[in-house]
Design a protein around this nucleic acid. Structure first.
Lengths: 247, 247
DNA sequence: CGAGTATTTGAAGATCATCAACTGTCGTGG
DNA sequence: CCACGACAGTTGATGATCTTCAAATACTCG
């Protein structure tokens, strides 16, 4: 699950390590991310300006308040997006998984912080490259718009979750979300959902306290909606999805 | 505050009335909305394809689940964006004010419902017109991306509000928001903020019950943070903004 | 194996929700 | 012009859910 490489762990929050990993032609998210719009010749250009780097666990590639002028495509691993209130209260506003990206636009000040939950691989482009590429593939910007739109809709679902759902519903919705993003691995009927993040991050995402989240997991297990709950995965019972409104 | 016109109040949820109001050249949001990107000749094109209509109070211009292929610019009035859970619980995900727009992109199924809080004027374009216009003003799509980004950031602030703030903080943040969107009218030191929406909408936006919202308003008045609370406006005391973390 | 951290569980308390009654406001019609 | 009805908003009393503080247990890594 974790990559061991000679990371550059010195430097500021936003510094990446200096390992340039490999090129687009081998990339396993190429077909699912925005990159799929690019022609072969453009991919060659990408290879030139792009920096594929390892982001060690815990490192931020973007920090709330700091300027940002790069677009990042997450190729491997997962990340956490957070916002803070002055008094230190933290809200996790989302998670990123393989194929997702951040920083669609140059901003003088990032609206949130993005940190690696485990050792991640990212591709980083300067934004000006996007403008170049858009000249020859006019759809590119449409795709960016579509993606922003998707992000916005996800945010709205999150708003509904926080505004209207009970603790139990929140946890189940969260598992749905993870299953959609990471899922697919249904061995022998039951679905084991890997949890890339610690409990505190989940709680901060769901607007609950750590303890409430833990209690809710226990309750759902007791009720039979969850078959197994461990530190880094949850197994849903197969009828689980049918028993509650699938929100 | 309300326009009296011979509205077409029959027909489905999404039907607008048939009143074509006037043209871009007179539009008072032209400088603040996406329209400001358009050249004079493009504006002439806009006038041709655009439909400026009155949306009577309560009417929806877009409904959750219904297809949408128009972009709407809100020229006058304000609107409410809502999402529903199956069991009828309703979350207000945002409000739109003069100059805002919705429907940046053709979708087979809208993610939310947009309804008029009072009699509104909107401009409506087919999306294909945007593509036309983008050919000659390449920034147009960048601006759309920027706007989507802004919407996303607002959604994230909403997420923080719902996930981490107390009832009191939520109400004050909401007033900040309104002041930013509608505000500006500071007569004699105190700031009177018009409330275009009923209490239930505010409560559903803030993730509170009607009664809790009402109690919180009363409490804030008692504490002196609000000078006056009435059905359709709130007056903040001038030191109010200094006393709490300005989130 | 043991220290340190992550997670779970317990008991008590706070905030917000619920149910219910009351008050204020607006528009209509006598 | 005032009275009335309907709806919007406020206030009260009680209760549920979630939080807080505290302690125990499980897990991970050196």
């Amino acid at each position: 699950m974790s990559v061991t490489s000679p990371f550059d762990t010195s430097g500021g929050d936003c510094r990446l390590s200096n390992v340039k990993v490999n090129s687009c032609s081998l990339c396993d998210v190429r077909s699912s991310s925005i990159c799929r719009d690019l022609s072969l010749s453009e991919l060659a250009q990408v290879d030139a300006v792009m920096a594929r780097r390892v982001v060690p666990k815990g490192r931020a590639i973007m920090s709330e308040g700091e300027p940002n002028d790069h677009l990042f495509v997450l190729v491997r691993g997962s990340m956490r997006l957070t916002k803070y209130l002055e008094d230190g209260r933290r809200q996790v506003t989302g998670f990123l998984f393989k194929g997702d990206f951040i920083g669609v636009r140059t901003t003088k000040s990032s609206a949130y912080t993005a940190e690696a939950l485990d050792d991640c691989h990212v591709c980083r482009f300067p934004h000006r490259f996007l403008d170049e590429a858009a000249k020859t593939s006019p759809d590119l910007k449409d795709r960016l718009i579509a993606r922003s739109q998707t992000e916005y809709h996800k945010a709205q679902d999150h708003i509904v979750l926080l505004g209207k759902k009970t603790a139990e519903e929140r946890v189940l919705s969260f598992l749905d979300l993870l299953e959609g993003a990471v899922g697919g691995q249904r061995a022998d009927g039951d679905r084991e959902i890997p949890l890339a993040m610690p409990r505190q991050d989940i709680a901060d995402y769901l607007g609950l306290r750590l303890e409430t989240l833990s209690r809710t997991f226990s309750l759902l297990r007791k009720k039979g909606l969850l078959k197994e709950v461990s530190r880094n995965s949850v197994t849903r019972s197969d009828e689980a999805s049918a028993r509650l409104p699938s929100i």
